[in-house]
Design a protein around this nucleic acid. Structure first.
Lengths: 260, 260
DNA sequence: AGAGCAGCGTCGGCATTGTCGAACGACGTT
DNA sequence: AACGTCGTTCGACAATGCCGACGCTGCTCT
């Protein structure tokens, strides 16, 4: 893996900077943040602007991301085979369970949501497609880390933030749970990222049984989990686990995976 | 406007090629299509792959768009000021009218959809955010070409496909209608892109009264248009026009446009 | 099975090309 | 009115990316 193209690496860094930081960044900010000369940063930004990847506010002169990225992102979804195959099954799962359904793939240090079916009865939701979720505290992430060595490696490198009191951040504990996930074939996350939210996820494999993504069901603890006698949340409902696993199997089969 | 960075231009061309063409492209295809040496194309693709902008199928070796584009596209939406301001108004418009609502901006030779509110009663819809619509045959496009000289210039350059029997492709006729649109302040498109679908759109301006986008209402002809005595579709319903224009005014005001 | 082929990846020489720093003009501020 | 800041331009240097030829692997055809 020899040399990469320097100007491209820098352009990508600029795009990520614009995506991560404030709404708009001035040329000097960009140059400073990346340790580039102003002229250099300007040349890259000018080209990115010509190509539509960044836009410039005519008054302030500041730069922000461009519309072409949205168009290309949409094209990515159009081309995405896993997503295309999963559309109908995810829909079914949402309708049968009455809960929100996510479809995610490993991307860098997190799970990228590539499909999102709204909960049928609820219209007031934000579309999560294109956003990232953590590896260590979501059902999607746990499935991927359990079955994909690359994901597990990324998890080790990433900082594991404790979002709630239930978040598990200790690596050994995570590995232990991953072993359980591998054994039983599905993962859960109950109030580990958002309080009040529980999720169940199962693995999707391609024709050579490689892990390529995961499908998850998300919902309020009260509906997803059974209630203990003392009022606290018990284990997740077995029938929901069955539905999620069936959906994952169906998608895998559509991708050409052998029966199992 | 002096020199642009060659390798960036080529990288952008590769991304567009991957977005436009087949699902996956081989290295030779890319090199051929752009007239590059294989080694050159490979260097660019390798860097794009490292940055996550393209992915490579391990078996076939073919390349396709990468997940990072989806993430950046989502960031574009997060940063987009017009979209942020319009969210609540577009929602209101959809709820009040019971129809689908689009929010679009000019991008290259078309209208890029940056927001899409589903028709309240209907769940079976595809999200159109990130896709492009033609300038000459949609209400969104007509509004933009009428008020934005850049859009009108792009329209002249673009080929105007006749999607239905009602599509207007003659430039003079389009200009004449644009004059009407400017006069009355809104545009309509009845079965000019999709048969059975009618839409109404109005302009959104920023604080300096520059056209920055348009909001549109889409629905079946039977509901959007009044019925003529002979059963054919008549003019669009005036009360819907009022709703659309009020939404556009509200969004413009949120963007800082002076009252009007 | 062997040979042929087509595809991706790599390597080194050459010059093109991107990089850098300084200077310019335009704004807005002190 | 002088200063500071910002985006942009320009020219020289050399680092950098481009090119074409050469391995290498996997597949197909004979």
């Amino acid at each position: 893996m020899a040399g990469s193209i320097q100007s491209l690496e820098r352009a990508a860094a600029i795009l990520r900077l614009l995506a991560g930081g404030e709404r708009r960044l001035a040329l000097s900010d960009v140059a400073n943040a990346l340790g580039l000369a102003k002229g250099t940063a300007h040349g890259i930004l000018r080209t990115l602007q010509q190509e539509g990847f960044v836009e410039q506010d005519k008054d302030s002169g500041k730069y922000q991301l461009g519309a072409e990225l949205l168009r290309l992102g949409q094209s990515y979804l159009d081309v995405h085979e896993l997503r295309a195959r999963a559309l109908v099954w995810a829909d079914d799962l949402a309708r049968a369970s009455g809960e929100t359904v996510y479809l995610g793939v490993l991307h860098q240090r997190g799970v990228l949501i590539v499909h999102h079916v709204f909960r049928p009865d609820d219209t007031r939701q934000v579309l999560e497609v294109g956003s990232m979720q953590p590896l260590h505290s979501t059902a999607l992430g746990k499935v991927l880390t359990a079955f994909d060595p690359v994901a597990r490696a990324e998890l080790v490198e990433s900082e594991r933030e404790a979002f709630t009191a239930h978040t598990v951040t200790d690596l050994d504990a995570i590995d232990a749970e991953a072993a359980v996930v591998r054994e039983r074939g599905w993962a859960q996350a109950v109030e580990e990222t958002w309080t009040g939210v529980a999720s169940i996820a199962a693995l999707i494999q391609d024709r050579r049984r490689n892990p390529v993504g995961a499908v998850a069901l998300n919902g309020p603890v009260e509906r997803v989990c059974t209630a203990e006698p003392n009022g606290t949340a018990g284990p997740v409902r077995p029938e929901l686990v069955v539905s999620v696993r069936e959906a994952a199997r169906a998608i895998s089969r559509d991708l050409g995976a052998p029966r199992f």
